[in-house]
């Protein structure tokens, strides 16, 4: 797998983030184009290509989710296109609730509404999906270790299922947060 090779590490799902970072910075110091500004054109190109892949690799591997997605893709297990059935109900309900809120004209981005209390259903939804995402992260963590130990394809299939589910939960969360505008830190 190209990205693992770029960082010179074994293809594993569970990675020690600190070790990964250290490796990335070491290789960056060695290969960054800044170090080759007076080298020949071909050496400059090589440094550019190498760091581009190195950066792509680090960006992908440092996050457990993108790492797993990459790992599955490389193992010939693409993500499923259909939403997980158990989440369908959830999605409909949330969309309805959001519609309703919009219908009342409530918006946290408007100055006057910001003074009103935030609708409790939004806070609840945010909590709920946050918890679901935390659970997913834990499940992935466990499965990563399992996979690395036994290298079974079944584990990868299971990871795929969780990733599919996570993607939809993340979308739900995004919709809620958009409404909540939570990141506006006043």
């Amino acid at each position: 797998m190209k990205y693992y090779e770029a960082l010179g590490i074994e293809p594993r799902l569970a990675l020690d983030l600190d070790a990964l970072k250290k490796r990335f910075y070491e290789l960056s110091r060695e290969w960054h184009p800044d170090r080759f500004s007076r080298a020949s054109a071909s050496e400059q190109q090589k440094a550019l290509d190498k760091t581009a892949v190195l950066n792509d690799a680090f960006r992908t591997l440092k996050e457990p989710v993108s790492r797993a997605e990459y790992f599955l893709e490389e193992s010939g297990i693409p993500p499923s296109k259909n939403p997980p059935p158990e989440l369908l109900e959830e999605m409909f309900e949330l969309n309805e609730a959001l519609e309703e809120l919009r219908g009342t004209g409530f918006s946290l981005s408007s100055e006057s509404d910001r003074l009103k209390p935030v609708p409790p259903q939004l806070i609840e939804a945010q909590k709920k999906y946050g918890k679901m995402l935390d659970e997913v992260a834990e499940q992935l963590d466990t499965l990563f270790k399992q996979h690395d130990e036994h290298r079974e394809r079944a584990a990868l299939q299971e990871i795929r299922g969780i990733l599919d589910r996570r993607r939809y939960v993340a979308n739900l969360m995004r919709d809620v947060e958009k409404e909540l505008n939570v990141h506006v830190s006043n």
Partner: peptide
């Protein structure tokens, strides 16, 4: 916000 050089 991808670190550059970056490629796709």
């Amino acid at each position: 916000n991808s670190t550059i050089p970056a490629s796709a």
